Amino acid sequence: MKVLIVYGTVEGQTRKIARFMENVLQEDGHQVIIANAVEEPPEPDDFDAVFVGSSVHIQKYNTLIRDYVQENIDTLNGKPSVFFSVSMAMASSIEEEHNEVEQIAKDFLKKTQWNPKKVWHMAGALKYTQYNYFKKLIMRSIAKKEGGSVDTSQDHEYTDWPKVKEQVLSFINNIKEHK
Rank of each mutant, 00 (worst) to 15 (best):
M139K: 00
G147P: 05
A105F: 03
A91T: 04
N23F: 03
D45S: 12
A37H: 03
I73V: 15
D46V: 13
S55Y: 10
M90T: 09
L126Q: 14
K145L: 11
K16F: 02
H57T: 05
F20Y: 15
L126R: 14
L76T: 12
T9K: 05
D151A: 04
D28S: 15
I58W: 03
T63C: 02
K144V: 01
F47W: 06
N99R: 14
P162L: 02
S170G: 15
Q154D: 01
Y158K: 09
Q154F: 01
G124F: 08
M88C: 07
R140G: 00
Q70A: 14
L169V: 13
G124S: 03
W120V: 11
G29P: 12
K144W: 12
I65E: 07
V150Y: 00
P80S: 10
W114A: 08
G148K: 01
D107S: 05
T75G: 02
K176G: 07
Q13F: 01
E40Y: 12
S170H: 14
H178L: 10
I175D: 02
G124Q: 04
R140T: 00
D74Q: 13
E96V: 11
I73N: 10
G147D: 01
K16P: 00
D74C: 04
I17D: 05
K79G: 06
L137A: 00
Q70D: 08
I17N: 10
S92G: 08
Y7G: 01
Q103R: 14
G148V: 00
S55A: 15
N62D: 15
L137G: 00
I65H: 09
S85Y: 11
N62W: 03
I175P: 05
V24P: 05
K179F: 03
P116D: 05
N36Q: 06
N99A: 12
V69F: 13
E177D: 11
L169W: 10
D160P: 08
K111Y: 09
D45N: 12
L64P: 02
D151G: 04
L76E: 10
I5T: 02
Q167A: 07
L109I: 04
Y7C: 03
G53N: 13
S92I: 06
L4E: 07
I94N: 10
K2R: 15
K145S: 11
S93Q: 09
H98V: 06
A35P: 13
K165Q: 14
K79H: 08
A125H: 08
R66H: 10
E102A: 06
N62S: 09
I142T: 06
I5G: 02
K111T: 12
Y128P: 02
V52K: 07
S93C: 02
N174R: 10
Y128A: 01
K111D: 15
Q70N: 11
I172V: 15
S170V: 08
V56E: 05
D160Q: 12
I34M: 14
E96N: 10
M90P: 02
K136E: 01
L4I: 06
K163T: 12
G29K: 04
Q130L: 13
V52D: 08
V69P: 12
E43Y: 06
S54I: 10
V69I: 15
E166I: 04
A123I: 07
D45L: 10
K135V: 15
R140D: 00
G124Y: 09
Q13H: 03
Y133K: 07
K163R: 11
I175C: 05
I94K: 02
F108G: 01
